[in-house]
């Protein structure tokens, strides 16, 4: 019976999803330690939840995982656009539909009968995290090579602005992950779907 169930997530999507999980966990945890070296807010991240042991170690992790995030993200976006999945799964998307679905969801009445379809709030959330990840990579490029990417640096203001952009984009990503994990906890079968595809 299970065999007759249609594939919801193709193999390439599941693979890029889990590779992205590895990259994001490494980047966020090492990034927190890098932030701790010169915090621009009145707080630091607890050492226990950071990666790298010291600044040099954290940077090594960060500048290793950045290749995985960028390469994997690029493959995901290309396949997503190339297979047409981007347009069929995430569009159409209207503000009205988002508000309606959000209201329904908050009342706990959103239907999950058709796992093939994302509701409007999901569509918005997933598109948001795609754009946010692109912003993380671009602001990260400015932090890594502010002299070599002058156009990007100017677009983001300057080096110091790029630091803030990178930080807030990280915070937004972590916020997404928190909601995403809460949703998976509410509907555990979505985790199975992301592992076996259906």
């Amino acid at each position: 019976m299970t065999d007759s169930m249609p594939t919801i997530h193709p193999a390439w999507l599941r693979l890029t999803h889990w590779l992205n999980v590895i990259a994001v966990v490494i980047l966020v945890m090492s990034g927190w330690r890098i932030y701790n070296a010169a915090p621009f807010f009145d707080f630091k991240f607890a050492s226990e939840i950071t990666l790298g042991g010291w600044l040099g170690g954290a940077i090594q992790w960060h500048f290793a995982a950045m290749w995985l995030l960028a390469a994997n993200g690029l493959i995901y976006l290309l396949l997503n656009a190339g297979t047409g999945r981007l347009w069929t799964k995430f569009f159409p998307l209207s503000p009205r539909a988002i508000v309606t679905d959000l209201r329904t969801a908050l009342r706990g009445r959103l239907s999950h009968d058709d796992p093939q379809q994302y509701n409007s709030v999901q569509r918005l959330a997933y598109l948001f995290v795609m754009v946010d990840s692109v912003l993380l990579v671009l602001s990260g490029l400015v932090l890594w090579k502010s002299v070599q990417f002058p156009l990007l640096r100017e677009l983001l203001g300057d080096y110091e602005t790029a630091r803030r952009v990178h930080f807030f984009a990280m915070a937004a990503l972590v916020g997404f992950v928190a909601v995403h994990l809460a949703m998976v906890a509410l509907l555990p079968r979505t985790l199975l779907t992301m592992i076996r595809g259906r």
């Binding site: 966990v25 490494i26 945890m29 226990e48 939840i49 950071t50 990666l51 790298g52 042991g53 010291w54 170690g57 090594q60 992790w61 290793a64």
Partner: peptide
């Protein structure tokens, strides 16, 4: 120190950590 972060992440054994440092 690096190992602490590492085991937190993956639960890798002590022996593998040297390899990870070399890879980094």
């Amino acid at each position: 120190l690096t190992l602490g972060g590492l085991s937190l992440l993956t639960g890798c054994s002590l022996v593998e950590a040297g390899g990870i440092e070399k890879a980094l």
